[in-house]
Simulated assay, not measured.
Amino acid sequence: MTTAPTNAAELHRRSVVVETHNDLLIAVAARPVDRWAAFFREQWLPQLHEGGVNVQVLPVFIDDEYRPEGALRQTLRMIEAAHRVAEGNADAVRLCGDGAEVDTALDDGKIALVLALESAPGVGDDVELLETLYRLGVRIASLAHFGRTALADGSGEDAAGSRLTRAGVTALAEMERIGMIFDISHLGAAGVDHVLELSTRPVIATHSSVRALRDHHRNLTDDQLKETAARGGVVCVNFFAPFLHEHDHTVDRLVDHIEHLADVAGVEHVGLGPDFVAEVMEDTTRPCCAHPVIEGFRTDQFLPGLEGPAGLPLVTEALLRRGWGDADIARVLGGNVLRLFRDGLGRPAS
C-alpha cells in the first residue's frame, strides 16, 4: 500500500506558522494615528492570512532620524501603534504577553502578536527602562543594530571585537529576571559569544542566517549556532536575499541555509525570521529618493515570491521537494519558536 504524497498547502495550513521578524509596524506608525488599525487591516492582515501566519513578532525598529533624542518617544509611539492595531482588530489578532496567551489566541482562531525591541536605542544605558517597556508589552529585545549603542556593538562593528558593555551585561540579567527573551540577531560576533557565555535562559536569533554559506557579519557561525542550540534557543533564518547568496536569489538558497542550520544545530532549533522589508521600505521612502540600502545592498533584492508574508507557503513546498518530513517542516514553520515562547515568553526567572 502506497502513501499519498503530502499536500504542501494542507501541511502549511495545519501547521502553526510563527514569523519572527516583519517590520510592518514602521509602515503602520507612518500613517496618521486614526489610520493605524485600519491600515493594518487593509494592507497587512490579508497578507498574514494568505501566508498562514499564526504568530507574528512585531519588531520596534527606530529609524536614524529619531536617534538619539527622539528614540524613546518613537519607541513608545510604535508600541502604542501595536496596541491600537490589536484593539482595532480584536476579531482577528491579539497582543500576547506569554505562552499561555499565545495558545489562547491560537485556540480562538486569532493571530498572536508579540512585541520585540530591535536594538533598543530608546533605552540607552538606563537599563531599568526594560522593565517599563515590559509593562507595556515588550517580550523580546536585542541590544544593537549595525552600529554601536550604550549596551553593545552591532555586527557592523565586528572589527572592534567588542563584548557587551557593563550596562549590556546588566541588561541581559534584567531581561532574564523579568522574562524578556534576548535576541542575538544584529549583535556583533564577540557580543554574541559574550551573551552565550553569560546567559542562563534560552535566547533567540529572530532573523539571522548561516555564516558558513554566506560570509557576512549579519550571519551566525557554526559555533554560535551550536551554542545557541545547546542553551535551548532557536535561530530563525533571514530571507533577505543578499544575506543568503551573492547573486543566486532563489528559495533553494534559503533552504540551503535551513538545512545547514538543521544539520549543525538540530532541526528542533530552526525557525523562520524573514525580515520582510521590501514593501515597508517602498512604502515609507519618498518618491524623490533612491531606494534604501542596507549594508551596501538595495532593499529590493528579494527572493521571488517571498517579498512578503503571503509567500510563506513556498517555503513548505521547497522543503517538501527536498524530501523533508511533515513533522520536521512543522517544527521549522513554527513549532520550535512556539515551544520557546511557551517555556520562556513573559515568564520571570524563578
Rank of each mutant, 00 (worst) to 15 (best):
R163I: 02
R163A: 14
L164R: 14
T165A: 06
T165M: 11
T165C: 14
R166I: 13
G168F: 10
G168C: 15
G168S: 15
V169N: 05
L172C: 13
A173Y: 05
E174L: 14
E174T: 15
M175W: 13
I178H: 12
G179A: 10
G179D: 07
I181M: 15
F182E: 01
I184Q: 03
I184T: 15
S185A: 14
S185W: 00
S185T: 08
S185C: 06
L187W: 07
A190T: 12
A190I: 09
G191P: 08
G191D: 11
G191T: 03
V195Y: 12
V195F: 13
E197P: 10
S199I: 12
T200F: 06
R201H: 09
P202M: 15
V203R: 02
A205T: 04
R211Y: 15
A212D: 12
L213V: 08
R214W: 07
R214I: 04
R214K: 12
D215W: 03
H216F: 09
H216C: 06
H217M: 14
H217F: 12
R218V: 04
L220K: 04
L220D: 02
L220P: 01
T221D: 03
D222L: 07
D222P: 04
D223Q: 14
D223W: 00
L225F: 12
A230I: 10
R231I: 11
V234N: 03
V234C: 01
V237W: 08
N238L: 01
N238A: 04
F239A: 08
P242Y: 10
P242V: 06
F243S: 04
L244H: 11
L244Y: 09
H245C: 12
H245D: 15
E246R: 13
D248E: 15
H249C: 03
V251E: 05
D252R: 10
R253Y: 05
R253M: 05
R253W: 09
L254C: 01
L254R: 04
D256C: 07
I258A: 01
E259Q: 12
H260I: 07
A262H: 11
A262I: 01
V267G: 00
H269G: 03
H269N: 09
V270A: 13
L272K: 07
F276V: 07
V277D: 09
A278M: 06
E279Y: 05
E279G: 02
M281G: 06
E282N: 00
T284N: 03
T284C: 13
T285M: 08
P287A: 06
P287I: 13
C289I: 00
A290F: 11
H291G: 08
H291M: 13
I294V: 09
E295P: 00
E295F: 03
G296D: 06
G296T: 01
F297G: 02
T299H: 02
T299A: 10
T299E: 07
